[in-house]
Amino acid sequence: MSYPIPTPYEWSTTLDIGNAELNEQHKKLFTLINALDAKRSCGTTLKELLDYVVFHFKTEEDLFAKAGWSESASHKETHDKFVQDALALTSVGDAEMQFIKQWLITHICASDMKYKGVI
């Protein structure tokens, strides 16, 4: 299922997953994605985003383990697949920005909402 990409591209309360730390990290992901969109040719900006994505995923996965969440393995698989796809990027154009923006929205709305109230 696909979710509409918001305009402007920013976090809103409809994306609240019930965990303040993760909500703040999601907000930062929106900020970093917007920075990449503004400076698509800057490899440093892409690296900063990817480094933060890995940090964010580790935070989520640690919380899953602590809570004993039953769907943690499949959720981690989606994390690993995104990191694999993102690390393969050699340039950032319109299609890549669309992919990144859509992925974050869909991931929060379809996957992260599953752990709302669990962690």
Score class of each variant (00 low, 15 high):
T7L: 08
T7F: 11
P8Y: 04
W11M: 03
S12L: 00
S12N: 12
S12M: 06
S12Y: 06
T14D: 12
T14G: 14
L15E: 01
L15D: 00
D16I: 02
G18W: 01
N19T: 10
E21Q: 15
L22E: 00
N23K: 14
E24G: 14
Q25I: 01
Q25G: 11
Q25A: 09
Q25P: 10
N34D: 05
A35W: 05
A35E: 06
L36G: 00
L36S: 01
A38R: 15
K39Q: 08
K39Y: 07
S41L: 09
S41A: 07
C42N: 15
C42E: 13
C42V: 09
K47Y: 03
E48W: 07
E48I: 01
L49Y: 00
L49N: 03
L49Q: 00
L49K: 09
V54N: 09
F55Q: 14
H56A: 07
F57K: 12
E60L: 03
E60V: 01
E61T: 06
D62G: 14
D62S: 15
D62N: 14
D62P: 14
L63V: 08
F64P: 05
G68I: 00
G68D: 04
G68K: 13
W69N: 14
W69E: 04
S72Q: 12
S74V: 05
S74N: 10
S74C: 10
H75F: 06
H75V: 03
K76R: 15
E77W: 15
H79V: 01
D80M: 05
D80G: 11
K81L: 01
F82D: 02
V83K: 15
V83G: 03
V83I: 11
Q84Y: 05
D85G: 12
D85A: 11
D85Y: 10
A86R: 13
A86P: 08
L87G: 12
A88M: 15
D94V: 04
D94F: 07
A95W: 13
Q98C: 11
Q98T: 13
K101Q: 02
K101L: 02
K101R: 11
W103M: 03
W103R: 13
L104S: 09
L104N: 11
I105W: 10
I105D: 00
T106W: 09
I108V: 06
I108G: 04
I108A: 05
C109V: 05
A110M: 06
S111F: 07
D112P: 03
D112C: 07
D112F: 03
K116P: 02
V118R: 12
V118W: 10
I119D: 01
